[in-house]
Computed example of a mutant assay.
Amino acid sequence: MTHAAAQTTEVIGLPGLPRDDDGPVFAEPWQAQAFAMALALHQRGLFTWREWAATLADEITRAQAAGDPDNGERYYQHWLATLERLIAEKGVASSETLHRTRDAWDRAADRTPHGAPIVLQPGDFAG
């Protein structure tokens, strides 16, 4: 097994990852994209799987403490929160930059007709 295949197997084996008989499942395209980003950032050495799993577990625990029913429906929101947290902790981008970009994306998406590509414009960041 190649190193990349072994890493992918490690990710697929993460506890709590929604899956069916064929492997991980995604209800929305953004979930697959968040999954792919985590895999790519790990492969680039930003974090170890042990670090990822510990941070994800902490995000889930925080959400449960805040009343998350932990029924699996919000799993990828925890995945995304873990990505954002590690990116900020590692100094890749600040939490403020992540929030500003998310808000800009929301503004761009709001004005974009369904099915058309979303294009960020400088005004989207003015908020």
Rank of each mutant, 00 (worst) to 15 (best):
M1V: 15
M1W: 13
M1Q: 14
M1I: 10
T2W: 09
H3V: 02
H3F: 09
A4P: 08
A4Y: 06
A4Q: 13
A6M: 11
A6S: 09
Q7N: 04
T9Q: 14
T9Y: 08
E10T: 13
E10P: 07
E10V: 10
E10K: 08
V11K: 01
L14I: 05
G16C: 06
G16E: 07
D20I: 05
D20F: 05
D20E: 03
D21Y: 01
D21N: 05
D21W: 06
D22F: 00
D22C: 01
D22W: 05
P24S: 03
P24D: 03
V25C: 06
V25T: 15
A27D: 12
P29T: 09
W30N: 04
Q31R: 03
A32S: 07
A32T: 01
Q33T: 11
Q33V: 12
F35I: 01
A36F: 06
A36I: 00
L39N: 02
L39M: 11
L41E: 05
L41S: 05
G45C: 10
G45K: 07
W49R: 06
R50G: 15
R50P: 00
E51S: 07
W52N: 03
T55P: 01
L56H: 05
L56K: 02
A57H: 06
E59Y: 04
T61I: 03
R62N: 12
R62V: 14
R62Q: 15
A63F: 06
A63E: 05
Q64G: 13
A66T: 12
A66Y: 11
G67E: 09
G67V: 08
G67K: 07
D68Y: 07
P69K: 07
D70W: 07
N71W: 14
G72T: 06
G72A: 08
G72K: 08
R74Q: 12
Y75M: 08
Y75T: 07
Y76M: 05
Y76I: 00
Q77V: 13
Q77A: 13
Q77T: 13
H78Q: 09
H78I: 05
H78P: 00
L80C: 03
A81L: 09
A81P: 03
A81R: 11
T82M: 02
L83S: 03
R85L: 15
R85A: 03
R85H: 15
L86M: 12
I87S: 01
I87T: 12
A88V: 06
K90N: 12
K90D: 00
G91L: 01
G91I: 03
V92F: 15
V92Y: 13
V92H: 14
A93P: 00
S94D: 01
S95Q: 14
S95P: 06
S95Y: 11
S95N: 11
T97E: 11
T97F: 05
L98Y: 04
L98P: 01
H99R: 11
H99M: 07
R100H: 02
R100N: 06
T101E: 01
T101W: 05
T101V: 10
R102N: 08
D103F: 04
D103W: 02
D103C: 04
D103M: 13
W105E: 06
W105F: 12
D106T: 11
D106K: 12
R107P: 00
R107Q: 12
A108W: 08
A108C: 12
A109M: 13
A109H: 15
D110Q: 13
R111Q: 12
R111L: 10
